[in-house]
């Protein structure tokens, strides 16, 4: 039998719009692939036990915890991380709203919360407060800044749904 530790699997992944074909060991977590192989360290590891959601990224648009999925489980997937969301000067509306509403303190949970919020708003641009809170079930903010996070997500939804000119006035 083949020595399993040496077996590599070929997968094609599209990370933040860039297609890559990689030969990866099966025991490599998606979080490890993103952080250690691609140096996309915006995806944070909080608990590494599927509890905190800091490692949340989007897989084909759905939020998942990257510490609890093997990279080889995702052939052909489109993966979006916080690095692909926006850039300084061209922030994503959710990032803008987090800044405006002070929805981060230490910032450790923020990448996961942002990605979770983006997935939520892509599906439902006008979530109720209850829907926002339910959507955040999988993320933990150890600074406990939930009130501002909820407010920011509601504001971001309004911004994303509003016509462009209106959203520019909000700044």
């Amino acid at each position: 039998m083949m020595d399993p530790s040496h077996s590599q699997h070929t997968v094609t992944l599209t990370v933040n719009g860039q297609r890559r074909t990689e030969s990866l060991p099966p025991n490599l977590l998606l979080s490890e692939y993103l952080r250690d192989y691609l140096r996309l360290t915006g995806t944070h590891i909080g608990c590494d036990t599927s509890q905190c959601g800091a490692c949340t990224v989007l897989v084909n648009g759905d939020p998942i915890k990257s510490c609890t999925v093997l990279a080889v489980q995702l052939p052909g997937a489109a993966i979006d991380t916080v690095e692909g969301l926006g850039r300084p000067g061209a922030l994503h509306p959710v990032q803008e709203a987090f800044r405006a509403d002070h929805a981060l303190q230490c910032g450790f949970c923020t990448p996961g919360v942002l990605m979770t919020a983006v997935a939520l708003l892509n599906r439902d641009p006008h979530p109720t407060e209850a829907a926002i809170r339910r959507g955040l079930d999988g993320v933990i903010c150890r600074c406990t800044g939930y009130e501002n996070i909820v407010t920011a997500i509601a504001h971001a939804g309004a911004r994303m749904a509003a016509p462009q000119e209106v959203s520019q006035h909000v700044d």
Binding site: M2, P4, S5, P75
Partner: peptide, 30 residues
């Protein structure tokens, strides 16, 4: 957290899945 090494199979059919699991004692479905 580094996971220990294991063999990974991704069958496309049920028959193939059953064969692959039978080939390695202790194999688990994922």
């Amino acid at each position: 957290m580094m996971l220990g090494a294991f063999q990974y199979e991704r069958p496309a059919s049920l028959d193939e899945a059953l064969r692959q699991a039978a080939a390695v004692p202790g194999a688990r479905w994922l």
